[in-house]
Computed example of a mutant assay.
Amino acid sequence: MKKFTVSCLAIAGLSSYQVHSAGFQLNSQSVAGLGRAFAGDAIIADNAAVIAKNAAAMSLLDRPTLSIGAIAIDSKVELTDILYTPPSSSTQSLGDTTIDNLTVVPNFHYVHPVEHSRWTLGTTLHSNFGTDVEFDRDFAAPEFGGTTKLSSVNFGLSAAYEATDALSLGLGIDIIYGKGEISRPNLLNIDADGTAVGFNTGIAYIINDNHRLGLSYRYAPSLDASGTVDPLNGLATDLSVPLPDILEFSGYHRLHNRFALHYSLQYITWSEFDALTSPSFDDPIKDYQWQDAGHLSLGMTYDLQERTELRAGYMYDLSPVDQINSLSIPDSDRHWFTLGATHNFSQALSVDVALGYIVGEETKIDESMTIVRTSNIAALTNNSAWLAGLQLNYRF
């Protein structure tokens, strides 16, 4: 079983009102990618951010390129029709609850073609996971509420080799640092951090000047926590949570000198995320039993004029939640609608802007928890988010 640090548990673990992507994945590596709902991200290579999706596609950049940007995520989860049955008491109706959160996720990418060779090198610094959620202290069902905070940083080094004029191969190493905090009053307290090493590989295939395909695979690392893990006073220092691998296929097709279509199909092995465990305890701390999922995204780009490109996209993001659902992860299938643009101020300098709206399908939660006696909560959840990004690209 693969393991993931409790520092990144906050993204994966006991609660995450992060509504940016289904499950607890972040899509925030590229502002240009956001504008097209990340369609074609593993092959388009319109800036250095492609290193975060497919190292092989770095070969498409013929000049050293720097991309620096950030995406702001304004998310909302609405809980309605809440019925709470506390231990040793009758069922009561709770008032509607709304949880808002504003997060800014930065990114940094640099790609450098090696002169007089078929090699391209690159480095990236971005976040794949993250959330910051806090229920009100007076939330009437504290064992289902509490606080979840996470920050994670992915530092990557990659290389691409142009095997032929049509085929490039890529390989990269990922070093992940995460820090997280989870608390449930009188039930759970987690505060820990950790690092781990994973890898990614990819292929870029150029059919001709107007058509190209990309395939990438990202292996989920194994991380071990260090810190405080205290589920109901059963103190431990380690906790494990499985994390999935990611497989992505992308295509780009220029159908007119000003117009192109692109797409991505991403498959995520969420079935590996079965339970949160600790070597200190015989039983899982929390069962999830998720199913494999992923997303399908479609996008288009249009060259409005010589220096300005417009883009738009749609993504259907499939939730991995199966038979077991939880108020702490009110996940649902999501629909993304995005717009974006790039303006080239010169041959060297360009700026990307993007705006996106995510809406999740309404989901019914019915969750029980047994501590000394059983408590239960049921509710309808609706989640949504606005995303806005700005990114600067410089070609040396």
Rank of each mutant, 00 (worst) to 15 (best):
S93E: 15
N54V: 11
K53N: 14
N47D: 15
P87D: 03
I71F: 07
V105G: 01
S59R: 05
A48G: 08
I44G: 04
A56H: 04
K76V: 13
K53I: 08
N47R: 07
D62F: 09
T80L: 03
F38I: 05
I43E: 09
L94M: 11
S89K: 05
G69I: 05
S89M: 07
L66H: 11
N54H: 14
S67W: 10
A52W: 01
D46G: 06
K76T: 14
T85C: 00
I51C: 02
M58D: 12
G69C: 00
V77Q: 00
R36P: 03
A57H: 06
V104F: 10
L60N: 10
L34T: 08
A52E: 00
L102H: 03
F38R: 00
P86S: 06
T98S: 13
T85A: 01
N47T: 05
A57S: 14
G40F: 10
R63Y: 08
T98P: 01
A57L: 03
D74C: 09
T103V: 13
A39D: 03
G40C: 06
R63D: 04
I43N: 06
V104L: 10
D100N: 15
D96W: 04
A39Y: 04
I73R: 11
A48C: 07
L60G: 08
F38S: 09
A57K: 04
V50M: 00
L60H: 03
T65S: 06
F38H: 12
A49R: 00
T98E: 15
L61G: 14
L34P: 13
I99S: 08
I43L: 03
A56V: 08
L60I: 02
I68K: 04
V105Q: 01
E78Q: 13
E78P: 01
I51T: 04
A56C: 14
I44M: 11
R63C: 10
D41T: 11
A55T: 11
L94D: 04
I68F: 04
L83F: 09
S75R: 08
G40T: 11
R63I: 05
D41L: 12
I73L: 15
I44F: 09
G95I: 01
S90N: 08
I44V: 15
S67R: 11
K53A: 15
L34R: 08
G35W: 08
D74Y: 13
T103W: 04
P87A: 07
S93Q: 14
D46W: 00
L79F: 12
G33S: 09
V77D: 02
A57C: 00
D46I: 07
D41H: 12
L102T: 14
